[in-house]
Each structure stands twice: as C-alpha cells, then as structure tokens.
Amino acid sequence: MPRLIAPTADLHSAWLEAHAEWGAGLHEDGFGLEASDEVGSPEGFAAWVALLTGASGAKSAATDGGCSYRWIVEGDRVEGGIALRYGLSDQVTEFGHIGYGIRPSSRGRGLATWALGRMLDEARVLGLDRVLLVCEVDNLGSVGTIERNGGVLESVRDTGHGPARRYWIEL
C-alpha cells in the first residue's frame, strides 16, 4: 500500500536506488533536486532533506511562497516524489502548482494518479481554489494522470524547453 511521507534521511539508500533508475541528470520531478545538491553522501543527503523539510510547512497560499515535498513510498522502496508549490512565484507560473515523478519501473500502476489526488487534498487545506499543472505535450502518462484528477486543458504553449500542456484543476 503506497504512502505519502515527508522526505527523510532514513531512506537515503532507497532514494539513491530510485534516483539511479532515472539515469544521469535532473529529471525526477517532485523531488526538488537541484544541480548543486550533493545527495551521494549521508551528510549531504541529510542536509538536502533538511532543506526540503524546511521549505515545507503551513504558509498562507495567498501571500507566501513555499513548497511541500512528499515521497511516494511502498514498504522501504521510494517509488517517486510529488511537490505542491504555493504562492505566486515564477516557478508556479512556469511549472505549475504540482509536479511529480514516478521511477520508471513503477510507472503504469496508478501511483501518480493516487499521489496527485492526495496532494489536491493538501492544496484544499492550504486554501487554494484551483491548481495549475504543466506537462510536456507528449507525456501521455501525465496527461492521463491530470485528466483522471479533473484537469481541464487551458492551452498548449512553448516553454522554451518545448511545448507544454497547461491544465487547471478546480478544487
């Protein structure tokens, strides 16, 4: 049974296993990983987790920026990550309120759809009345995930990284 949990340094090995499955680069949407983050050592990983959990917290969605990170975990296996951005930041405008990623070997099982539903509940608690989700135009897995959660296509736009679909979900 999957669970959404706050990031924890206790899952260092499991997180590294999931990270390795994506291959080189930063494509694990939902984890908040930046190129400057050192996650290979236990100390670096713990520092990164502290940054993620420090960025999480109850803030006013209308006035403050922030982000709540959750990991999708089954047993002792990290299956993916999901992030809820709130406030009026450039990141929300470009990437949406919610970003997520499922490790390649766990895709197609409904984990992203399930996790997005849970994060929509968190968005409601924060007082958001609708959320923006953005995905690459050819990412049919994300298209299905967003549409199963009530996403309505607003537009397709060029983001500078290629065309992206922009969806709104009314809460």
Rank of each mutant, 00 (worst) to 15 (best):
R70E: 01
G25L: 02
G44A: 00
I82N: 07
G141A: 15
G117V: 03
E34K: 12
L140D: 11
V125K: 14
S36P: 00
G30H: 05
T53P: 05
V125L: 14
E154H: 12
G110R: 04
S142G: 09
G162K: 04
E17N: 14
E154M: 15
G101W: 02
V137T: 12
V131N: 02
H12C: 06
L111C: 06
L26Y: 01
M119P: 00
L33Q: 08
I146R: 05
T113W: 06
V137M: 13
L140Q: 12
R77K: 05
Y167H: 09
S41T: 12
S105V: 10
V152M: 10
W71H: 03
N139Y: 13
Y100V: 08
R148I: 02
R148V: 05
I169E: 04
T93C: 10
D10T: 05
E28D: 15
M119L: 15
H12P: 02
E170W: 13
V39L: 14
Y69S: 03
A123M: 08
P2W: 04
H161T: 05
V92H: 14
Q91Y: 13
G108T: 08
A62S: 11
R118C: 14
A47S: 15
V39M: 05
G75A: 04
Y100K: 06
A6D: 15
G127H: 10
H19Q: 07
E38V: 02
A61W: 09
I98R: 00
S41L: 13
M119K: 08
G151N: 08
H27N: 12
A6K: 09
E147M: 04
R165D: 00
F45W: 03
A35H: 07
I82T: 03
G144K: 07
G65H: 07
